[in-house]
Design a protein around this nucleic acid. Sequence first.
DNA 1: CTACCGATTGACT
DNA 2: GTCAATCGGTAGA
Length: 200
Amino acid sequence: MNDAPLSRSFYNRDCLVVARELLGKRLLRRTEEGLAGGTIVEVEAYLGPADPASHSYRGMTRRNRSMFGPPGHAYVYSIHSRWCMNVVVQPEGTPHAALIRALEPQIGLDLMRQRRQREKLLELTRGPARLCEALAIDRQLDGWDVTLGKDLWLAEGEKDESEASRQIAVSPRIGVTAAHDLPLRFFYANCPYVSGRRRA
DNA sequence: CTACCGATTGACT
DNA sequence: GTCAATCGGTAGA
């Protein structure tokens, strides 16, 4: 498996393109306890000044300053006493970001079980705050350069995934109160590790 | 300083 | 299906 980090140029593109292409990539996290991670199966795009749901809609603050920096860095924020992780995209100064909402857990399962205090795979990394807890991602990693290939980075996914399990679906974003009608959520249809309520 | 709110989760009917 | 915990960030006095 190729664990080399995705390059800066991957992130330095249109947010919608990056968000969609993040599906199938792997998110990796190494600490003293070991390596943990999995394949990204759900992502949301946040479009900065043009997007009332984005944290950067009203300009830069101490909290969201990472989004205004160069692409290929993490934007980690807290909500309801939990952490969530984005990757910053597009040229420096354009505060667009892609929120990683769910992984298929694959690497370091027992480590993630320990951090989450849950046994079931479905409860480890299904949801943006759950995956951050499973990977020990918190404020210390806000602004982290994910192209360095250490501590926290993204890498290519497996190449032999079947087409059936890689059908991309689009929907409105989950949980937002503003701009709740925009189709900016990308996920693998029929993937059990995608967050949100089940529907018929 | 205070008041309000949320890109969530987990527990409960 | 419903609902509240919980606390950092933000705006405003």
